[in-house]
């Protein structure tokens, strides 16, 4: 990991216009990604993690979605203002994605070879034969046994874990600078999850790929990520180095999340903590801290205004009235 920042997300806002009103799925998200870094984005379902990442490569379905503001700077160029043609040469090439459900993310009607070769031919300019050799090599790296044979099979002939390996091989086949993995293990068996995470960690370290790992599991984050963004209702409420956040969580939501992870060193008979209530429906939210109804430390001001972000340097920041001067 170097200090060179390759991706800067600045005040990103993505809104969805639905019948009931405007859903501010992502509302002012900022973070930086450095070369070779692994960044975790953690939050409950509906907190805007996936939308953030689809917005990065400008793939929000429009309508109903719309990127309402902000910048996504990749090596200084704003991906949101780039012509589609230039953007396409980055997608799958410099920035590639892996999705949650490996069962539905591969085209069931096309052979694995077809799906892998088309990407390699498109971005690397290899001919089909060389591309297939490259694809087989990637499958081998991803731990698929007998890749020369299996490459000609269809997705339904693979198990869930194997398909996710195929997705990883496909995602890394063009040596991307950034791999965005959207809950890559949530749809898999627990026993497979660790294998897939290890594989990702190993391969990206070897290739020097930066990773944005989206997950709702703090366990996954702890083992994988250098830095962390905690999202709640479309906003980043806390970010910083993983170790620091685990050692000293500042935002009440982060504190709640960490406490709700079961631990082996917990005394027997101790009850597992949970955060009460439900994550909010983000349609037409009033200006307030969206977490206050579930927060034990909520104050009056929390109901009236969203707190400014307090920076602590070195990437550490938190958005909570507890740490804001003007109370």
């Amino acid at each position: 990991m170097t200090d060179e920042v390759i991706l800067q997300v600045k005040d990103l806002k993505t809104y969805f216009h639905v019948d009931e009103g405007i859903v501010k799925a992502v509302d002012g998200v900022s973070f930086n990604l450095r070369k070779g870094e692994t960044l975790g984005i953690v939050g409950e379902s509906g907190s805007g993690k996936s939308v953030t990442n689809l917005s990065i490569i400008n793939m929000i379905p429009n309508p109903p979605g719309r990127i309402a503001g902000g910048e996504v700077l990749f090596h200084g160029a704003d991906l949101l203002k780039m012509p589609v043609k230039d953007l396409r040469s980055i997608r799958g090439n410099k920035i590639s994605m892996i999705f949650q459900d490996p069962m539905t993310s591969l085209n069931p009607f096309l052979r694995i070879s077809t799906q892998m070769v088309e990407t390699i031919v498109l971005h690397q300019g290899l001919d089909k034969k060389a591309a297939k050799a490259k694809a087989i090599e990637m499958l081998k790296l991803a731990g698929i046994p007998a890749p020369e044979k299996r490459i000609d099979q269809y997705p339904h002939q693979f198990s869930g874990g194997m398909r996710q390996r195929v997705m990883i091989a496909m995602g890394l086949s063009c040596n991307p600078e950034i791999l965005i993995a959207d809950e890559p293990t949530s749809a898999l068996d627990v026993t497979i999850q660790a294998q897939i995470l290890d594989l990702m960690k190993d391969l990206t370290a070897r290739l020097g790929t930066a990773v944005i790992l989206i997950t709702h599991s703090l366990g996954v984050v702890a083992g994988m990520c250098d830095t962390l963004c905690v999202m709640y209702a479309g906003r980043v409420v806390e970010r910083g180095a993983t170790g620091e956040i685990f050692a000293e969580p500042k935002h009440p939501y982060t504190q709640g999340l960490i406490k709700s992870v079961p631990r082996l060193d917990q005394a027997q008979g101790d009850r597992l903590r949970s955060i009460r209530g439900q994550p909010p429906n983000v349609i037409d939210l009033p200006d307030c801290c969206p977490f206050y109804p579930r927060c034990d430390k909520a104050m009056d001001i929390c109901k009236r205004k969203y707190p400014a972000t307090t920076e602590y340097g070195n990437g550490r920041a938190v958005s909570c009235w507890l740490y804001t001067e003007a109370k």
């Binding site: 490569i57 793939m59 396409r88 040469s89 980055i90 997608r91 799958g92 090439n93 590639s96 994605m97 999705f99 459900d101 539905t104 993310s105 591969l106 085209n107 069931p108 009607f109 096309l110 088309e118 990407t119 498109l122 971005h123 997705m167 496909m170």
Partner: peptide, 24 residues
């Protein structure tokens, strides 16, 4: 989902339609 994958790979929209959408 698999069309989202195809687009994330940087394929042209016409290729996405002709190769990935039509058969299914």
């Amino acid at each position: 989902d698999y069309i989202r994958t195809a687009r994330a790979k940087g394929l042209k929209e016409s290729v996405v339609v002709a190769k990935h959408v039509l058969k299914g």
